[in-house]
């Protein structure tokens, strides 16, 4: 854990230029940390006040140094970036955290935002983008790579769809018998097998299927299966 000389952390007086943005870098790769420090300190508006090599150190540095921004690697030995984020979420430390990552799943972005991350930046991003992201989060905004936003919206929608607060499942007006037949179709049974299984005539099964396709708006068995899974009709 590296900490800057306290003198360099002193807030500038009112007659001086605005206080620099105090940054902590958390990444397990020393060379990456040093490189990032050089990039940031080439800009007069930033001062790197500490470096951490894992999530635990990052949380501790945030507690002690009260930086404005934490640049947090997602994958680190010991306590991961996500673990650190979870811990920071429950602490009173008012730090804006930007996740730095080589790659991230949509669900992880959603989780990170729910835990209070202010931004996500890929390590492959240009340095000026990282600097813009820090300025953005300091201005109270969230920063997610533009290309990821549509993915993120999709991920949020999926998560909302899967949440327990979701309204009752759509059943498309299907009767219990029709749900039973839909389940049999999705399981791969033929009309004849369904008829045998449910003690119905094959014509009756076909009649039910016509109604099911109409109600679901499906045009074939494949689409019916996909709709049934999508709307969790068979759960």
């Amino acid at each position: 854990m590296d900490v800057a000389d306290p003198a360099s952390r002193t807030e500038l007086g009112p007659m001086d230029s605005p206080s620099p943005i105090r940054v902590v870098i958390a990444d397990d790769h020393t060379i990456f940390r040093k490189g990032l420090r050089s990039v940031l300190e080439a800009e007069t508006e930033f001062v790197v006040v500490g470096e951490a090599a894992d999530g635990e150190q990052a949380v501790e540095l945030c507690r002690v140094l009260q930086p404005h921004v934490l640049l947090l690697d997602l994958v680190m030995p010991g306590q991961s970036g996500m673990d650190a984020l979870a811990e920071l979420a429950t602490s009173p430390t008012p730090v804006r955290t930007i996740l730095l990552t080589a790659g991230i799943e949509k669900a992880e972005i959603v989780k990170a935002l729910q835990l209070g991350a202010a931004g996500v930046v890929l390590k492959s991003a240009p340095t000026d983008l990282l600097i813009k992201s820090i300025r953005s989060v300091m201005a109270g905004q969230h920063w997610i790579g533009r290309e990821a936003v549509s993915d993120l919206v999709q991920a949020l929608r999926e998560q909302m769809a899967a949440s327990p607060e979701k309204p009752a499942r759509k059943r498309f007006g299907l009767s219990a018998r029709e749900v039973e037949i839909t389940s049999a179709v999705v399981s791969g049974l033929s009309n004849r097998e369904i008829a045998r299984k449910l003690s119905l005539s094959e014509d009756t099964v076909k009649h039910h299927l016509t109604n099911i396709f109409d109600k679901m708006g499906a045009s074939n068995r494949l689409e019916l299966a996909l709709f049934a899974v999508h709307h969790r009709l068979l759960e």
Binding site: S183, L222, A225, E235
Partner: peptide
């Protein structure tokens, strides 16, 4: 692989 309750069915395309 299509999940169906506790089982699954396979659609071959």
């Amino acid at each position: 692989l299509i999940p169906v309750q506790l089982s699954a069915s396979v659609i071959v395309c």
